[in-house]
Amino acid sequence: MGQLDNELLQELLDVSEKEFTPKQAKIVQAAIEIFSEKGFSAASTSEIAKRAGVAEGTIFRHYKTKKDLLISIVLPVISKFAVPFLAEQFLNEIFDEEEYEEMDQFLRKLIHNRYEFVRKNTALLKILLQEMFYHTEIQETFKEIYVEKIAPKYRNLMKQFLTKDQLESIPIETIFRLTISTVLGFLLTRFIIVPNYDWDDEKEIEYTIQFIRNGIKGLS
């Protein structure tokens, strides 16, 4: 539960501005896992120290407060996975690599891409979901990503689909909101709310695509 694989841990440490000692790396890994499992408020530095195999005082030699430890994890995650991944790699993979003949093709690529991202980074995303409502720095980063980078590309693509299907009267912002909330709802349910359910992932992805497509056409 909430385990973090070594490959993902190394990616996180690689984007930090400072060098991590092996002991610090153990503290960061333990903190990510416990914050993910219990949330920031319920987690304790003694639990983190125990899982990391270090004395509690060792944590406070590296981080002045528990919030410092949280921010040292969350902000690198945002800079690594949100800014370059979502705003650069995500844009390249979804919007720039190929031309889409129809909306279903685009939605299928989008959902599969985000499915793999969430599957690999569930523990870290749990922390972001739990803490973004309390930390304005996280909120502002996500706002910048979506407003300035993701939304414009999405709008342009949707305009092409709507014109082709003669659905120009539907507000693009409404379609953006409905699409994003539906895809996020699927991913949160699948990986965080009821991850142990016997999901047929391919069928669920196709149902999600049908729901979005038919819902948009139903607005016209």
Results as ranks from 00 to 15, higher is better:
Ala82Glu: 11
Trp199Val: 02
Lys164Tyr: 06
Leu162Ile: 01
Asn113Ile: 00
Ser181Gln: 09
Phe106Pro: 05
Thr21Gly: 05
Glu137Tyr: 08
Gln210His: 12
Phe117Asn: 00
Lys217His: 13
Ile192Thr: 00
Leu178Ser: 03
Val77Ala: 13
Glu102Trp: 01
Phe40Asn: 02
Ala87Pro: 00
Ile27Lys: 03
Pro152Gly: 03
Asn214Pro: 00
Val118Tyr: 02
Glu88Ser: 07
Ser72Tyr: 09
Tyr134Gln: 14
Asp96Ser: 09
Glu204Phe: 14
Glu37Arg: 11
Glu19Asn: 09
Arg190Ile: 04
Tyr146Leu: 09
Ile172Arg: 03
Val183Met: 04
Glu168Pro: 07
Ala87Leu: 10
Pro76Leu: 08
Pro195Ile: 08
Lys80Asn: 10
Glu99Ile: 13
Pro76Thr: 07
Thr45Gln: 06
Leu184Lys: 10
Glu88Gln: 11
Phe117Ala: 01
Phe142Trp: 15
Leu167Ala: 09
Thr65Arg: 07
Ile212Ala: 05
Ser16Arg: 15
Lys143Thr: 14
Gly215Ala: 05
Arg155Tyr: 15
Lys143Leu: 14
Phe85Gly: 01
Lys66Phe: 05
Ile170Cys: 05
Glu11Thr: 10
Ile172Ser: 08
Ser44Gln: 12
Asn6Glu: 15
Asn92Trp: 06
Lys23His: 04
Ile71Lys: 13
Ile138Val: 15
Glu99Val: 11
Ile180Gln: 10
Glu19His: 09
Val77Asp: 07
Ile209Ser: 01
Ile78Val: 10
Phe90Thr: 02
Ile34Asp: 04
Thr182Gln: 05
Glu140Phe: 08
Gln10Thr: 15
Ala25Pro: 07
